[in-house]
Each structure stands twice: as C-alpha cells, then as structure tokens.
Design a protein around this nucleic acid. Structure first.
Lengths: 210, 210
DNA sequence: CTTGCGGCTGACCGCTCGGTCAGCGCTCGG
DNA sequence: CCGAGCGCTGACCGAGCGGTCAGCCGCAAG
C-alpha cells in the first residue's frame, strides 16, 4: 500500500493548527509558547511535537496554510474585461473583504511580511507578496498603455499606495473604532468604495466621473 | 538637595537605550532578551536592571523616547497658508522622510501600534497616533469646507489612505528593493511626490493640475 | 488471544529567561 | 585619610522554555 492516508490531516492536527494560527496572529512567533498552544488546543505539549516536530515547523504550517488562503485574490482581476476603475475597485474590495474575513490568516502573513528577519519563513511571504504586487502592477501598466490611466501616474507607487491603504486600515482597525469620525472601521465595502472614489478620480485620463 | 542630577542621562544609559531601540525595532519585545541588549551595549545584564528596573520599563523608555521624535510631524501643517495640495504633499514628504530618517524609532512605535495587546504601552502609541490622525483629519475637513476638496471625498478615508500608503511603503521597503519596477524604495522625496500626484488629482474640485 | 502500531501522554532534560543581591572600585566632600 | 555614595558586576535564583523519551491505550490484522 503505497497510497497515503486519503483523509485530510487528523482532527487533532486541525485543532492545533487553528489554535496556533490564532495565537501566532495575536502575539507573534516569540510571544507564543508551545505550552500556550497545547493548552488552547486541549492537548499535551508532547502531542504537538509528535505531530509537527519543532516549533518552527508548526509555525511554517500555519504560515503556508494562511498564505494559501491569500492565493486567488488577484486571479480573477486579469480575466475581467471591465473598465480599469471598476477592476481596481474590485481589487480593493476583494482585498479589504478578504482581510476582514480571514483576519488571523491575514495577520500571521502580514506579521511575517513586516518582520525583517532574513530567514526561510520570510521568503515564503515575500514570494506571495511579490507575485501579487507584480500582477497588480502589470494590470495598471497595461491600463496605462491603453490610455485608461494618465501617463503621469507611477504604476508602482499607485499599487503600493492602494495595497498600503487597505492593509493599514486593517492593521489599525481597532484604533479606528475609537475615532468617531471613522465610519468604515469594520465595513470593507464602504471603505473600498471611498478609497476607489479617491484613487480612480486621481488616475483618470481626462473626463470626470462624478 | 532636592534637585535631580542636572546632567542628561549617563552615557551608558544612552548606549543601552540606543541598542535596546535597535533590537526592539528589529525583533520586538518578546524577541529580545536583556542579555541581548547587554551584549550589544557591552555592559552587564545586571547593569541594565540597575538603570531601568524591569524589561517593561526599559521598553517603555524606548517607546516614549521614540514617540517624542514623532511629535512635531503635523505641527507646522496647520500654520501653513499654502493651497491644500501643497500642504498634503508636504505632509506626505515629511512623514516619509521622517520614517527614513528615524527608521528604528518609527519601527518601534509602529510595531506597538499594530500589536493588539490592550496594555499600557498600547495607549501611548494610540494617543500619539490618534492625535496625528485627528489633526490631519481636521486639516482635510477644513479644506473641504473651503471648497478645496471635492465634497464626495471622505476625509477619514483619505487620511487613512495617505498615512497607510506612506507607512506601508516603509514597512515593506526591504521587499520593494528587490522589485525592479520600484524606483522609490529608499527615496522618500520621489515616493511622496508620486503619491501626492495621485492623491491630489483625486481630490481636486474641478480643474486639473497637470 | 496476541501482536504491532499509531495517537498520545507525563515526566524529565539542559538551557535561557527576567530578576536579585552582596559587594567591588572609584570618586569626591569633609 | 576617611567613608559615603554611585556605577557597575558576577554569581545566583525560580520559572518557563523548546524538545526528548519511555511507555500507555485502543484498535485492527493475523
């Protein structure tokens, strides 16, 4: 029997992974001990080492599984045939909604992305982030070549600004809830609409949309 | 003799603070041990406890001293009498330049800001961040009332997007260096100019600037 | 019934952690 | 010449860390 077990990872393993993700997202790699995870998952500490070997390995599993949930974010954008302002709005909405839907997965990836440790884990996050950046960059560049976006706009700066605007809002959402002026702290649809309004009217060739 | 020592903190203390800031910025509170700081500062571990009492206290000193360097960022903006696009450009430039000039101070504050631990340290970062947000928000709101900014623009969203665009670029600058399409990874002037170009043309009332 | 095996555990390991403490050496006022 | 005070240290503490290991338990095949 060469075939591996057809069933997905054991229930226990999934519970451990879920709790580890939750804890790593909240407190980071160094802020969480295996004992913490074991207690949260209601298993023994040794059990975690039995299934994952080392703390690093457990963390890597959490990171990769979280990265996978980020995968298809920009996939559909390239196939769309809508005008650029609509496609960018869709991207902003998809990104913001994704962050809200999978906050722990997002947080664990972003945390690793923002750390400057030049280890293996970093590369994973960089690859995924780099791929997403490049896809969005090319989309903007093509739209610019097609005349949909003004020539003065720097595509890379626009992409960084767009992603940054969405990510930052996610990162400081707990603060924004306390600001009475902010009405989009937990409303990705509203925020991405407001964002798109600003960005699109900033990259239009000639005419005004309003 | 009730007066405290008139001299600024001892040389040793300043060295410890500098090294601690560097390490906390790079690896976070949990990622740095007092031994690490002691080795980096070339003093004994006990010396650090002698001067700062606890690890938390050392961290707080690092955080507050870093926050102070953030202080005057938005101060001059309110007094300026330039058109809004110029003032926003100045803000973006000042912010981006500040992040580049004091990367460790910025990182230590941002790190604390993005953590979701509801402790005392958090409050410090929140207060400073909240104040800066509100100041910029009011600036935008006034400009909008004065007709300098289109009524459709949401001031809060614009502020979050602007700060986020600058902060995010800073956070991922090490990644952006590897992206050949990005020419502003370590050039705050260039990046803020490109940002302003996009944002300003997105918030203009009627006429075009180009 | 027996045997093998995988999921799982409690007890334990060496080590590092944050923190303590007695006491060193140097300086400086009396 | 003295002693008080300060900057500073090495040795040490209990606790918790990542990780190991012998072995328990239930189950399925022989």
């Amino acid at each position: 029997m060469l075939g591996a077990s057809p069933s997905p990872p054991h229930v226990t393993v999934r519970i451990i992974l879920a709790e580890a993700r939750r804890l790593f997202a909240a407190r980071g790699f160094d802020g969480v001990s295996i004992s913490d995870v074991a207690t949260a998952a209601a298993v023994s500490k040794a059990n975690i080492f039995h299934h994952f070997g080392t703390k690093q390995a457990l963390y890597m599993e959490v990171l990769t599984s979280s990265l996978n949930e980020f995968g298809e974010l920009t996939d559909h954008l390239q196939r769309e045939r809508a005008p650029i302002e609509q496609r960018l709005h869709h991207f902003l909405l998809a990104h913001a909604a994704h962050l809200q839907k999978y906050p722990e997965a997002a947080q664990v990836v972003l945390r690793e992305l923002l750390e400057n440790r030049s280890e293996i884990t970093q590369q994973l996050a960089e690859q995924a982030a780099g791929a997403q950046f490049r896809r969005l960059f090319e989309l903007v560049q093509e739209a610019q070549r097609a005349g949909e976006i003004r020539a003065e706009v720097d595509p890379a700066a626009l992409v960084v600004a767009m992603i940054g605007a969405v990510v930052f809002q996610f990162q400081v959402r707990s603060l924004l809830r306390h600001q009475p002026e902010v009405e989009f702290a937990d409303d990705p649809k509203r925020y991405s609409r407001l964002l798109a309004e600003v960005f699109v009217n900033g990259i239009h060739s000639e005419e005004t949309t309003g």
